[in-house]
Design a protein around this nucleic acid. Structure first.
Length: 494
RNA sequence: GCUCGCGUAGUGUAGCGGUCCAUCAUGAAGGCCUCUCGAGCCUUCGACUCGGGUUCAAAUCCCGGCGCGAGCACCA
């Protein structure tokens, strides 16, 4: 009997009805902040499919809410960079919804003239009653002339925000309440809350809602496949009803479920923005925040982040993943190129006694135990008794009675009054191997280590080095860390 | 309340009627290797939400229950 090994599908599943070279995908974030951890999924999945099918990826800024989720100017610049970092290429086309308001207006007018939509002057509460009761609101019977008059009143400011909306006619008896005559346009007070893009500012009073804007734009751009969260399933259903009015064909749509990262409970872009402005966080790349900027800063490899998302796949299950899953991917990417370096926390000065004939001016240590990525040199200053080093307090107390192995150098005997005699250059296997730095060969540095919403700042002595800013190193017996601009360290992961 | 969706080892996934006493990764435990508590290698552990039905045959199809999540915003 032979055991058959079943073929296991690798990577993402095939896209339905996808023809190589003709696939058009889009990634449509709200630029109310730079990209978050969760946006990574949209970037990775869409860009991966674009590559696989030799298709196009459109970046669309859905910036149509000027008051609740106002766009952040910085985001328009940072998001494209973040996409390029993660996807490995620039979007083939970038669109801003705020540039396309008049196009949406044309479609609104078309819809009103067709009798497929109407101006509704009911309040949100009033309409809710109709929605619950499955009955038509009085505005539903407006003639198209009356609707056009209403539309003009919205545009010219006769109406104020809250007075009127444009609704898409579906069916008030639709068994899914979410689909009943849904709103397509509302008014916004752009005098009080101008759109942050200067060229838009207070130019428009009437703004499309996502379901309308996105639906029209997807059609106009020839989007063939929409990949979105399953919380948008009803959005798809609303849009399909709109497409039927226009006689358009809706793109293939694929959904993913909700992802929660254990370590990051309860962060939203709006909340982060508020807290950054309040000074709670140092910026969008604060070590504690679940943003792509922070991931980059902490030394997460973009390929590892891609692998992480691709492994999660495209299921509609709601999942909760630990950050360690991403870290496992990252270790695979960075370990081979991460130079080893010693970082001594809670340093204890130890004087090491060495006979004069065994003193060398320096030793050379491999930067990586397996890979050939160079050597580092550790120099010593000698005095009458020997030389001074620092080791972690925890190590010196734990091993004071028996001595220890100074990794890559020598064994030392028991420590008494800050002094220990070197016993051998060759390692005695029974001794604990600890890391250390030479007195003149290290400089004070801090290691920033985020733990949930807490940032721990660990002081220590970092072995001297000449690695450039941004190098990801492995601190012996501590973990991976990235060298920051000021020479300090930010913790990557274990 | 109405509507929609999901439910495979601790976690995440593959499988989607027989080749499944169910894949792979991660995790945990043990071992090997190694001058790091890192990497690598090996072994082990561990799952089809429940109940009916259809069928010669169900993780896979159907119905119901249960659990979880989402939508019903003049947010995206």
């Amino acid at each position: 009997m032979e055991k058959r090994v079943k073929e296991r599908r690798e990577g993402l599943p095939e896209l339905p009805n996808a023809e190589k070279g003709k696939v058009i995908l889009r990634f449509a974030p709200n630029p109310n902040g730079p990209l978050s951890f969760g946006h990574g999924r949209g970037v990775v999945i869409n860009s991966q499919y674009a590559e696989t099918y030799d298709g196009k990826l459109i970046l669309r800024f859905d910036d149509t809410d000027t008051s609740r989720k106002p766009p952040l100017p910085l985001a328009y610049e940072q998001i494209p960079e973040e996409i390029e970092w993660l996807a490995g290429f620039k979007p083939h086309l970038t669109i801003m919804a705020s540039d396309r308001i008049e196009v949406y207006y044309e479609h609104a007018v078309k819809m009103l003239k067709m009798g497929a939509g109407y101006i509704c002057t009911c309040s949100a509460d009033e309409f809710k009653q109709f929605r619950v009761a499955k009955s038509n609101c009085p505005c539903r019977d407006n003639s198209s002339e009356k609707n056009m008059q209403g539309w003009e009143k919205m545009l010219d400011g006769t109406y104020s925000p809250g007075d009127a909306v444009v609704r898409v006619k579906t069916d008030m008896a639709n068994k899914n309440p979410a689909l009943r005559d849904w709103p397509a346009f509302r008014m916004q007070d752009t005098i009080t809350n101008p759109h942050p893009r200067k060229e838009i500012g207070s130019k428009y009073r009437v703004w499309p809602l996502l379901d309308f804007q996105s639906a029209v734009e997807d059609h106009l751009q020839g989007v063939t496949h929409i990949i979105r969260g399953k919380d948008l399933m009803d959005s798809t259903r609303k849009q399909v009803l709109l497409y039927e009015h226009f006689n358009w064909e809706y793109p293939e749509t694929i959904y993913w479920g909700r992802v929660k990262v254990h370590e990051f409970g309860g962060f939203s872009t709006s909340e982060m923005r508020k807290d950054i402005e309040a000074g709670i966080w140092s910026g969008w790349d604060d070590p504690c925040l679940p943003t792509m900027a922070t991931l980059r800063r902490r030394g997460i490899d973009p390929i590892a982040f891609r692998d992480f998302w691709i492994e999660l796949g495209l299921t509609q299950k709601d999942i909760a993943v630990p950050l360690s899953s991403l870290f496992a991917h990252n270790t695979k990417k960075i370990d081979a190129t991460a130079p080893r370096l010693s970082f001594v926390r809670n340093p204890d000065a130890i004087s090491v006694g060495i006979d004069a004939d065994e003193r060398m001016s320096s030793i050379s240590v491999k930067s990586h135990p397996k890979e050939d990525i160079g050597m580092r040199k550790i120099s010593f200053d000698w005095n009458e008794r020997g030389t001074d080093i620092y080791i972690e307090n925890e190590d010196s107390t734990a091993n004071a009675d028996i001595g220890m192995r100074l990794k890559d150098w020598c064994d030392i005997g028991p420590i008494a009054e800050g002094f220990s005699q070197m016993t051998s250059l060759e390692p005695a296997t029974e001794l604990a191997k600890i890391h250390w730095v030479a007195k003149g060969g290290a400089s004070p540095a801090t290691l920033m280590r985020p733990e949930g919403k807490q940032l721990h700042t660990i002081e220590g002595l970092l072995e001297n080095h000449d690695f450039p800013i941004g190098t990801i190193v492995q601190l012996e017996r501590v973990g991976y860390a990235r060298i920051e601009k000021d020479g300090n360290l930010i913790y990557t992961h274990d």
